[in-house]
């Protein structure tokens, strides 16, 4: 799999459910169909939440999820979502 081209990056680190989802929903509406949104979250539940969102919403495709520890020692969960034609 090639490198994912990110059209927009959204930082929701520190935010609690449902805000990562709500903000990501707003952000993905602002990119074009076919483009990719990258979301950084600290909520551990966002891993299953973004999977659930993509399962339920025909206009969103979850491409990839990864995690790392940031400079503040927080565990960060990264989600790559593509806006698709519903």
């Amino acid at each position: 799999m090639g490198e994912i081209v990110v059209a927009r990056e959204l930082d929701v680190r520190g935010l609690q459910c449902p805000m990562p989802l709500v903000n990501a929903h707003r952000a993905i509406k602002q990119i074009a169909v076919g483009e990719v949104l990258k979301v950084l979250a600290t909520d551990r539940g966002s891993l299953l939440d973004f999977k659930g969102w993509a399962e339920t919403d025909d206009s969103v495709e979850l491409l990839q999820q990864e995690e790392y520890t940031d400079e503040q020692g927080r565990r960060v969960y990264v989600h790559y979502l593509r806006r698709v034609e519903p």
């Binding site: 459910c17 989802l21 539940g45 966002s46 891993l47 299953l48 999977k51 659930g52 969102w53 339920t56």
Partner: peptide, 10 residues
């Protein structure tokens, strides 16, 4: 498992 509102709603 650990999740949030979208996990339940899905």
């Amino acid at each position: 498992e650990l999740g949030g509102v979208a996990t339940y709603l899905a």
